[in-house]
Amino acid sequence: MSTSLKPPKETISAAVIEVPEELRWQLPFWRRFFNKLFGAFCFTALAIAGVLLVYLLFSIFRDGFGRLSQQFFESFPSSRPQRAGVKVALMGSLWVVALTAIIAVPMGVAAAIYLEEFNTKRNKLVEFIQLNIANLAGVPSIVYGLLGLAVFVRWMALDRSVISGALTMSLLILPTIILVSQEALKAVPKSYREASLALGATKWQTIRRQVLPSAAPGILTGIILSISRAIGETAPLITIGAVTYINFVPKDVKSRFTVLPIQIFEWSGRPQKGFHENAAAAIIVLLAVLLLMNSLAILLRQRATRR
């Protein structure tokens, strides 16, 4: 009875789309009003975020731009703000992020491939693992710091080194990489796999030649987001004992280190104005590194999409 009175769903949505512009003015006033109001609300939200961001960038550049010089990139930390520089912090950040990427990316993508492609019959154990990965992605970063301190620094006796930092950061970003890669793999139509298998390709060939290339843009997006998070994190590295003053650049994975966010944090807490300017300048450096890495990844993603 009732079903015959209602037109099928598709017709309704089609009808809404086809309302001509001039007919909209015949809508009741309050509907038009709320329509406008909602638009205004969304714009305000965007404007607030935009203005805050512009102001933040403006104040950072105002304070820090003058400090950016060759000397700033070539100097070690110092108790005199004019002599201090970001050399060790920048090198430390690059070391940690590079090692983190090398450790976490292959591991994360491989785990995602296993969960999506090889484990089609979901059993209880895998469901349990899946649930844990989802939960781990939401665990506060300081917890990973404590874990890293207990496991890598103390138990595995890796000391407060670059590799301890990178392993801790890898733990931190692994869940995100796995989840995002899984989503990307899920989005690859089943027919691709079926067609490939039907033509006699092995599972490995199917994944390598069909599934992964199609999922690459999504996976790369996940990697960009995770690496960006790793470069900005401070708390876990402070916990595992990254230092604030250091007179040598990391030479190998066992070196002590500091990273840009820690240097920024430490400088901004100092009483001298000069250090606050250094902090602003270091923020500019950090932003530049982030942008550089992101654009590199976006480039890679575009190449993958074009295929």
């Binding site: 004992g241 230092v243 003053y245 040598f248 430490e266």
Partner: peptide, 8 residues
């Protein structure tokens, strides 16, 4: 001499 100072 390699020196490092942390502030935890």
């Amino acid at each position: 001499v390699q020196m490092d100072v942390a502030v935890s």
